[in-house]
Design a protein around this nucleic acid. Structure first.
Lengths: 208, 208
DNA sequence: TCAGCAAGTCAATGGACGTTGACATGAACC
DNA sequence: GGTTCATGTCAACGTCCATTGACTTGCTGA
């Protein structure tokens, strides 16, 4: 009798009891679900199922949905932060990355979807103001440096968000000429923002 | 007895029975709530209360929450569409408008919040792809004209969305020097996009 | 004045979901 | 081997919310 059961167990991994591991599994599943669906649409039962545990453990380990969310949010914005980009190649690299998002650098795209959804939802927005500033705006500001770094960081962040949203809305990848043009223009935009000096006036488009 | 009751009625407006008016009232309340909270967080009871009617009427007039949402979405993107901007002043005007959003041109900000929330929520995104293209991207594309209008329209739309999100996340108004810098840079960005010719290469930031 | 219908009200239903506490089970320690 | 505590399971409960259908009220036309 025991042998047949042992065979039947193969599909479900017989995970050993391990608080740390299950906690981590829940957190990982939560990060994915919250990024994909946002706080309101994500469902604890699904998170638990994805982690291979019971819902009740969410309460045991995190206290509740909101607490889990905050934890997942923090976990998503850990060390990375102020990645040191090369100033001379930044604009082009970022543009290319965005053009190929979300297929390239999936983890990064993922994290920012998370942040974006969190920042926009009226439920979670209040939890976020500090985090957005500390982990997102402030690193950009410091990296930019120069005059009016704060305002420029804001514009840079906003542009970045916009391109990300655009990619989020259209799922398909950019290709061929369209991709090239996208990269060209976006590179030009980031170049405007990285530059310390003010953009020259009178470039308000051709006077038709 | 009747007189005292008549006096007590003052606060609640004794609206006459009027199908068209109540339908309109519901739609108006729905537009506001959906824009403010998004599809998932908006509650039919609140919409009904704001419109001064019973929840059941939502079903009678619109069929259900999703149908009401679609209706509200269409109603929000009616005639406006391809407003004819002056090409020579577009960049600066738009930058200024965004800097002062949402306090100026509140209606416009409102509508785009609506669209944004709708586009991002996984619940409503499927309902939107066509609408976003027809009422948002396509008018921009036509207005832009020139080479690679499609790709440029995409970048323009994305930037616009980004700035809107930034303003949405921070509620407070830009002021003083910060506002000036914001307008300067954003103007430069839009200028890059309105222009038909490709941006000059090599402006990848100072070589430090 | 009365029938008939549209407009509006009310209470109830059913599902989804976060939360909770009682219970079972495995491992570590005496 | 038995005790004990942490880990994991189970079956609810309560709430929120969209939906529904039966009921009431006011208007209109004969």
């Amino acid at each position: 009798m025991t042998e047949t059961i042992a065979i039947a167990r193969l599909p479900a991994s017989p995970r050993k009891r391990n608080a740390e591991a299950t906690r981590a599994a829940i957190l990982e599943a939560a990060k994915a679900q919250f990024a994909l669906l946002g706080y309101d649409c994500a469902v604890l039962r699904d998170i638990a199922r994805e982690a291979g545990v019971d819902v009740a453990l969410v309460k045991r380990y995190f206290g509740g949905k909101e607490a889990l969310f905050v934890e997942a949010l923090k976990a998503s914005f850990g060390p990375d932060g102020a990645r040191d980009w090369d100033r001379t190649t930044f604009a082009h690299e970022m543009a290319t990355m965005l053009a190929d998002s979300p297929h390239v650098d999936e983890a990064r795209t993922h994290r920012f979807q998370f942040l974006l959804r969190a920042a926009i939802s009226p439920t979670t927005a209040p939890l976020l103001n500090v985090l957005v500033h500390d982990r997102f705006l402030e690193p950009i500001r410091q990296w930019l440096g120069g005059a009016d770094a704060d305002a420029r960081a804001r514009v840079l962040a906003a542009s970045y968000i916009g391109f990300l949203v655009e990619r989020l809305i259209r799922g398909d990848a950019l290709q061929g000429r369209e991709r090239e043009v996208f990269i060209e223009r976006v590179t030009a935009i980031f170049a405007v923002l990285v530059t310390d000096i003010e953009p020259q006036q009178g470039r308000n488009g051709p006077t038709v």
